[in-house]
Every structure is written in C-alpha cells, then in structure tokens.
Amino acid sequence: MKRTVLGIIIAAIVLYIWGFIYWGFGPYSTMIWKKSTDDVAAGKALQEFFPQNGTYFVPSFDQDQKLVETLYEEGPVAYVHMLSINGRPIMADFSNLIQGFFLNLVVIILIAILLNQVCTSLPGYLDRVKFVALAGLISAIFYDCGDAVWWMLDWSWELYQAFYGFSAWLVIGLILAKFIEPEMKQDSPT
C-alpha cells in the first residue's frame, strides 16, 4: 500500500509540473486559438447577447424548427463558452491551481485502481506502461476527437488537448508502473 500511495503522490507532482510546462509554454494561445478582429467590440457583443456564464449554442435549438434550419443555413453557427461575464484577473486565482492538483490526484488514484486490477496480466514494466498509455490514447481520441467530430470544434485545438490528455496518461503510466507490480496485486490503493 505504501508503494502505491508513494507512486500516486509522485505521479501527481510530476503531472502537475508537466501540465504547467505544457499549458504555460505551449503555442495554443498564439498559434491555435483564432483572434477576433476587434476584442473590445467582440467583448461588448458577448456581454450583450450572452448575459451569464455558461455554454451557448447559436442558433439555439429551443425555437421554431424552421427558424433554426434557416439560421443554420445562413450562419454563423457557434459554440460559445462564457467564462467570466464581468471579467477577472488574467491569472486565475490560486484556488484554481489547487482544484487542478486535486483533479489530477483523483484521476491518478482511479488509474492506480485500474492498473492494480490488471497488473497480474501485465508482468513487465513496459506492459503496464503500454496498458495505461493505450487507455489514455483511447480516452483522448474518444473525448477530444469526439468534440471535433460531433460538435465540430476546431481540430487543431482538439488535437492539442488530446495530445495533452494522452501525454498525461503516459506520464502517470511511466510512474505508476514502477510502483504497482504483479506481486502487489493485493495492495489496493483504496
């Protein structure tokens, strides 16, 4: 149990550092996200037409079906996430970082439970790493590529997110596979 807990803690710290590097220094804000032609005017329009925080789909589906079809055909069609209608500091408050760490920790615990359930079938270190990496790849493809397919979100953004998701699972697998081994099967992290 102690080895598993130690592996979870190390994985949580390393993943947090990896996330900081990936999201802090990555090109998404300058190379992947598109820019409006006028941020001030766009911001005012967003405040006027999207009056509260939340996710909007334009045109909305809760109106006459013929009108929705016409609006769809004429465009634009948009998926809008209002994050802070009244603004916020450029850097989110510290609680966001703490919540992110605990989210990572919960996911790592769940992956440790998963790995513990199958580790007797995965005798080698690389077998366990490949198992976790494959699960991460499946998750990234299903979730992020699914958003690109089903919601038509931008492929470059979704692939950027998918790569992070996969790489996070890989980092977790590289670490947990050292701490969760077949002879430890009875050592559950729960």
Rank of each mutant, 00 (worst) to 15 (best):
M1S: 02
R3P: 00
A12T: 13
I13F: 06
I17D: 03
G19C: 08
Y22A: 01
Y22H: 03
G24C: 10
Y28V: 10
Y28R: 13
Y28H: 13
M31S: 14
W33N: 07
K34Y: 02
S36M: 08
S36C: 06
T37Q: 05
T37N: 06
T37C: 00
D39W: 07
V40Y: 04
A42N: 01
G43H: 00
G43E: 00
A45K: 04
L46T: 04
F50V: 01
P51D: 03
Q52W: 02
F57G: 00
V58N: 01
V58L: 10
P59I: 02
S60I: 05
F61N: 09
Q63P: 04
D64H: 05
D64I: 04
Q65G: 02
E69T: 05
E73M: 01
G75Y: 02
Y79W: 09
L83G: 07
L83E: 10
P89Q: 08
P89S: 14
M91F: 13
M91V: 13
M91W: 10
A92V: 02
F102K: 06
L105M: 12
I109F: 14
Q117L: 14
L126D: 06
D127G: 04
V129F: 11
K130M: 08
A133V: 05
L134Y: 11
A135P: 00
I138G: 03
A140M: 07
A140N: 06
Y143V: 15
Y143M: 10
D144S: 13
C145M: 15
G146H: 13
D147L: 14
W150R: 11
W151F: 15
M152E: 13
M152I: 10
L153S: 08
L153N: 12
D154T: 11
S156W: 11
W157Q: 13
Q161N: 15
Q161S: 15
Q161E: 14
F163C: 08
Y164F: 15
G165T: 14
F166W: 10
S167H: 04
A177N: 01
E183A: 10
K185Q: 12
D187L: 12
D187N: 13
